[in-house]
């Protein structure tokens, strides 16, 4: 590992100020499961590491039927994964957590860190976008909040500015009759970065879909919303033909690249397969 200076601020103000003062090679440390890998693999120049884990107020998990699930920036993936309430209410999110890295990594990794790293293949982003999650951000000018769908600007890039620290997430409570699915495609059953990830969250009325959100991972510079495919579903009775159309539309909406994990063509066809499977299962799922 390269050397860096280590800081342990006790408040958000102090952390924020450090980040501003120390300049662009100072980085927030949460779980470190991205940050340390990037330092070791020399993907990132780091002069200073600002550990935010001793800042109080970011470790709570609360559930409120009106608001939904709220959790702080320091809550780990494993904490959320093992909560029965999360498994029951947000099976898509729970699945994304189960499929993220290993138990050891999930014991350190924070969900907010997964979001802030802004990898197009990050597993928690598609289900959280599909569920309309909101991210809360401390900025030197005060607190901000924004829909997660608007948070990402490119691979590894977000709307966070120097001195900004994400403090937590709110996932709205699901509508009474809804289905939510996250499907991850990789060549192994674990320890895989998604070749493609598809999240589908549907609100239903019998076999009619009243509202749909589809988020596609690893097929664009950020996780994408397939809004035309969503529009196809809205207010429609779900049939096999419609599902096929939705799959084709999602394929048309994604913009994958070829790399060592898969070709663009393959990714695109997996978007079709996974979207079809996800819509079908989400319509059938009872929640």
């Amino acid at each position: 590992m390269r050397r860096f200076a280590y800081h342990e601020p006790k408040t958000l103000e102090e952390a924020s100020r450090l980040l501003v003062d120390l300049g662009e090679n100072a980085h927030v440390l949460a779980g470190g499961t991205d940050l340390f890998v990037e330092i070791r693999e020399r993907l990132r120049d780091v002069s200073d590491v600002v550990n935010i884990k001793n800042i109080p107020g970011m470790t709570d998990i609360t559930w409120d039927p009106a608001v939904g699930l709220t959790f702080g920036a320091l809550v780990t993936a494993r904490q959320l994964e093992t909560l029965p309430g999360v498994q029951r209410t947000y099976p898509n999110f729970a699945e994304a957590l189960r499929l993220l890295a290993s138990i050891q990594v999930r014991n350190r990794a924070t969900v907010v860190g997964n979001l802030c790293r802004a990898s197009p293949s990050a597993d928690t982003i598609p289900p959280l976008i599909a569920d309309g999650a909101i991210i809360h951000i401390y900025t030197p000018k005060g607190m901000r909040r924004m829909p997660l769908a608007e948070f990402f600007t490119g691979p590894g890039r977000t709307r966070l500015e120097r001195g900004d620290i994400a403090t937590g997430i709110v996932i709205p409570a699901p509508a009474p009759d809804s289905g939510r699915i996250y499907l991850k495609h990789g060549r192994r059953k674990a320890m895989e970065l998604a070749t493609v990830g598809v999240a589908v969250s549907l609100d239903r009325d019998g076999d009619t879909c009243t509202n749909a959100r589809i988020a596609l991972g690893a097929v664009g510079p950020t996780v994408l919303r397939a809004s035309a495919a969503e529009a196809l579903l809205k207010g429609r009775k779900i049939t096999d033909e419609l599902i096929a159309q939705v799959g084709a539309q999602a394929m048309a909406e994604c913009t994958p690249i070829s790399n060592v994990r898969a070709s663009a063509e393959y990714r695109r066809s997996m978007v079709g397969v996974l979207t079809r499977r996800a819509v079908k299962t989400a319509m059938e799922a009872t929640q």
Partner: peptide, 16 residues
């Protein structure tokens, strides 16, 4: 080298 690491050089693991 395009995949000199254990993420993209994919050895079968316990679940595989």
């Amino acid at each position: 080298s395009l995949n000199a690491g254990l993420v993209d050089y994919k050895m079968p693991l316990s679940m595989d």
